[in-house]
C-alpha cells in the first residue's frame, strides 16, 4: 500500500436496513434491550440499525419477542441491506467489520 494521501477514511461501523413493519420492530426491540452500543433510526420505509464493530441478531430472541417461531430465511426476507461482512448461521446472523 502506498503512503500517498488517501480520500478513503477507514470506518468500523456495521449496519443493517430492515423493511419497516412488525418484524423489524421486534428486531429493533431485541437489539435496544440487549445491545446498548447499537443506534436505531426509523425512516419512513425502513429501520436502520448500526453499531461499531459487530452486530448480532439472535433468532430465538426475536422469535420470543414476536411470540411465534422465526427463522433465518424469514429474517432475510426483511433484511433489505447491510454493510459489513455477513455470516449466516443456524440461529444467528452476524455482521462484522473484519474480512471473513
Amino acid at each position: 500500500m502506498s503512503n500517498a494521501p488517501t480520500l478513503i477514511q477507514a470506518r468500523d461501523t456495521v449496519g443493517v436496513k430492515l423493511m419497516a413493519g412488525e418484524e423489524a420492530e421486534a428486531v429493533a426491540a431485541v437489539i435496544a434491550r440487549t445491545d446498548p452500543q447499537a443506534t436505531i433510526t426509523r425512516h419512513p420505509s425502513y429501520i436502520s440499525i448500526e453499531r461499531p464493530q459487530r452486530l448480532e441478531f439472535s433468532l430465538p430472541l426475536i422469535a420470543e419477542e414476536l411470540g411465534r417461531p422465526y427463522d433465518v430465511p424469514t429474517f432475510l426476507v426483511i433484511l433489505s441491506s447491510y454493510h459489513g461482512r455477513i455470516r449466516v448461521e443456524d440461529e444467528c446472523v452476524t455482521i462484522t467489520t473484519e474480512l471473513v
Binding site: 480520500l7 478513503i8 477507514a10 470506518r11 449496519g15
Partner: peptide, 11 residues
C-alpha cells in the same frame, strides 16, 4: 465513500 470505501474497500 464512508460505508463502501471506508467500511470495505479500505480493508
Amino acid at each position: 465513500l464512508e460505508d463502501y470505501y471506508g467500511g470495505f474497500y479500505q480493508k
